[in-house]
Design a protein around this nucleic acid. Structure first.
Lengths: 208, 208
DNA sequence: AATCAGATATGACAAATGTCATATCTTCGT
DNA sequence: ACGAAGATATGACATTTGTCATATCTGATT
């Protein structure tokens, strides 16, 4: 299995090479040290996996990754980072990275490479721990449990889209008064006092 | 490294054992076939990793996992499943599972086990692909970019908590009129028309 | 046919929200 | 000390939102 390493810090690059090549099945194709290197060397070597730092001067690992994945959508990119950073994680996931691990966890680099090669995605503990809190906005509750009807759910969606009663009425071909009444009923059923709380309820609990 | 296998289908359990024990470093401590088995056998063997099916008659793998993690928070649970299912993924992430892979990918089971043992979390491709869309309710935007002041952010939080202007005023020791004015300014800065949209903006974009 | 439940609508009202001009007061820089 | 800038407040007003009693219409039940 061929690995391409890209890291700002050449010493880190060499250390990684040593670690990786301690495993006979793995070879390091090349070592780059900036985003531009990553793009160029990836096309040149077509490695099985690109092991790349996120933070680099000039083109960041994410920008380089995005560019590489545009050209080679099958590329397997595993990001290395010195600390867990939410913003990066989300962007890394979005561009389609295969993983995100901390450099400190050097003993987990080889298993991570193998898992990625086998088609899995790998993430360090700290990183995964952050995802649920972003996802979970509370247990997914079912509006039906509160006796919310279909029409009422439409209205809730309207409120959660930030519409006024008049706008919701227009969208659903009902009168504004009907919406007003219905909003009262909805708040009653959900135990809320203000329309804003309906939107909040939606984003925290339902939102399907 | 000791593995505990739990799967509804005994044949699958035995096949997994065969695959796993083809690797000398790995041994299977035991094989269970239901959620109750999982809980009991986990306490009995304290395996390094619990490899468990999600769908099982009676207690599901998720319920069992939740219970095990309550008693043994350090437990490493790797879920096996026959298909990728959003609901399960989210719940699995929430309870703190270390991974979620498809049974079909049997050649990736061993690397996955090793990566989990090394402290990483492992997810099959299909699964990871779904996370960004769940996460990405818009890029995390910075309120400062809109010229929102600290006090204004407090008010935004109040609105996002569903408070009325009067309640926010009370909480911040300001007059209700001041809050009203401030809300106008906030909507102006964020390009919004209604307070509900402020709450929505908060939940979609900021919420730190 | 008589009745009932539902969805929709209206009007009257109360309360909350949003807009705007303007006023105080403090603080900061010169 | 002077004036500018910022934060807070007020009052007047328009609009939106929420509450409630009541009305109308439809379709289903008996």
């Amino acid at each position: 299995m061929n690995i391409l390493i890209v890291d700002d810090d050449k010493l880190v690059g060499i250390s990684l090479k040593t670690i990786i090549e301690s495993e006979p099945a793995l070879q390091v194709a090349d070592i780059g040290c900036c985003g531009e290197d990553a793009v160029r060397l990836y096309s040149e070597h077509k490695p099985d996996i690109l092991l790349m730092d996120i933070r680099m001067d000039g083109m960041t690992g994410l920008d380089a990754g995005e560019q590489i994945l545009r050209i080679h959508p099958e590329a397997k990119i595993l990001y290395l980072t010195t600390f867990a950073d939410d913003e990066y994680i989300v962007r890394a996931l979005k561009i389609g990275a295969k993983g995100y691990i901390l450099k400190q966890d050097f003993e987990s680099i080889i298993p991570a490479l193998k898992a990625v090669h086998a088609g899995q995605s790998v993430f360090g503990e700290d990183i995964v721990a952050k995802i649920p809190s972003l996802l979970s906005r509370g247990q997914q509750k079912n509006l039906d449990d509160y006796g919310i009807t279909g029409k009422e759910e439409d209205i809730i969606r309207g409120i959660a889209d930030g519409l006024s009663n008049r706008e919701i009425a227009g969208a659903l071909y009902l009168s504004e008064g009907t919406i007003r009444n219905s909003v009262s009923v909805i708040m009653d059923k959900l135990g809320l006092k203000r329309r804003t709380q309906i939107a909040i309820f939606w984003y925290k609990n339902a939102m399907s």
